[in-house]
């Protein structure tokens, strides 16, 4: 990102402030939701959706993922795939186990 002009940086700064406001707002939202009675599964799904939105905002804007290079994208794709395997395969093994 060494090629940024001062104008662009100033523009970035505006984005950062907006993202900050969004993050703070979503934090309040997710706490608020947790006090509603949405049932077990509904609550989990909603909270995870909100957290994912917040995470995406941080990654895309603060970590500048939106204008990153392909090498980084490939690395992260591999990581996400490995992460999903790590989360879901042991879980499915356990659920399959419980059925017999």
């Amino acid at each position: 990102m060494s090629e940024l002009t001062p104008e662009e940086v100033k523009h970035h700064i505006k984005t950062y402030v907006l993202v900050f406001i969004a993050l703070a707002f979503l934090t309040i939202v997710t706490v608020g939701i947790s006090y509603l009675d949405l049932g077990h599964v509904g609550g989990i799904i909603l909270a995870l959706i909100v957290a994912s939105i917040k995470g995406t905002l941080v990654a895309c804007y603060f970590m500048h993922l939106l204008d990153e290079k392909v090498t980084i994208y490939w690395t992260l794709i591999a990581t996400v795939v490995a992460f999903l395997i790590l989360i879901f395969v042991p879980l499915s093994a356990m659920l399959d186990h419980a059925r017999i």
Binding site: A47, K54, G55
Partner: peptide, 24 residues
């Protein structure tokens, strides 16, 4: 920039830890 990337990541982990541990 590099330190920032690390720090945002630590923030990002918390963004998930918070609902998972406290709210669910």
């Amino acid at each position: 920039e590099i330190v920032g990337l690390y720090w945002h990541f630590v923030d990002l982990v918390w963004i998930f830890l918070f609902p998972v541990l406290y709210l669910l």
